[in-house]
């Protein structure tokens, strides 16, 4: 089991002091190398769920076990390190650091993990996403689709066991959307990486075997 969530709750405190429950998940699992698409209404808490899994946000209670480690029990620095090594994260837009070239963006992910920087692996990944002719371009010189492909390469750089993708195709035109999606899925398959991909697009969702609607397993109101 690559990801297993138990009794997870998360709420935000509103400016007035009222608690706003967002997540209340009894049980949610993703198997090794499984690919899951997550759909749901806007504001439903999909991004929050990914952030909690990535350890970028802390939950209120419950367990998030990734590859045998419950990330909710880790200290912040340990979580940072765990994230660097085990989790790849692709956002909707502006994934890349503008001061660095495509290659450098991929290498940066490696250096933050504290591992030895594997330049040839970075080059391999960029070639895999079809960008070997754009290695030394800065993000502003790349199209949105190309930027997203660099982000995918970077997310896979540390050979993670889980790839989180938060509406990665939302800002990409339809022609490139399928292309990008295919690429993400193939790369995950090749590297046996579990994938959790958030999307609004029915078109995208229909390509996956397993489609999860957030509201089907998340009952925030029940938490109160």
């Amino acid at each position: 089991m690559s990801l297993s969530i138990r009794n997870l709750t998360k709420s935000y405190v509103e400016p007035g002091g009222r608690r706003l429950p967002i997540l209340n998940v009894d049980s949610f699992d993703i198997a090794d190398a499984e690919q899951v698409v997550l759909v749901g209404s806007s504001g439903g808490g999909k991004t929050t769920l990914l952030n909690v899994i990535a350890g970028v946000t802390t939950s209120d209670s419950g367990q998030v076990v990734i590859d045998g480690t419950d990330v909710t029990t880790l200290s912040e620095p340990a979580r940072d390190r765990f994230r660097a090594l085990k989790i790849g994260y692709v956002f909707q837009t502006f994934n890349l650091l503008p001061a660095f070239t495509a290659l450098e963006n991929v290498l940066l992910g490696m250096s933050f993990s504290g591992r030895k920087v594997d330049r040839s692996h970075a080059l391999e990944l960029l070639e895999r996403v079809g960008l070997n002719h754009r290695l030394h371009h800065r993000p502003t010189k790349l199209s949105v689709g190309e930027q997203q492909r660099v982000a995918v390469a970077r997310a896979l750089a540390n050979r993670p066991s889980l790839l989180l993708a938060d509406e990665p195709t939302a800002n990409v035109d339809t022609a490139n959307q399928d292309n990008l999606l295919k690429l993400i899925r193939e790369a995950c398959t090749e590297n046996s990486v579990s994938l959790m991909l958030v999307t609004h697009s029915q078109d995208v969702a229909s390509q996956f075997d397993r489609v999860e609607k957030l509201s089907d397993f998340n009952m925030p109101e029940a938490a109160e």
Partner: peptide
Amino acid sequence: KREIAIMRALGAHRGT
């Protein structure tokens, strides 16, 4: 802010 958040999401520590 976003650049820093990206670095953190990539696994950079606060200290880094």
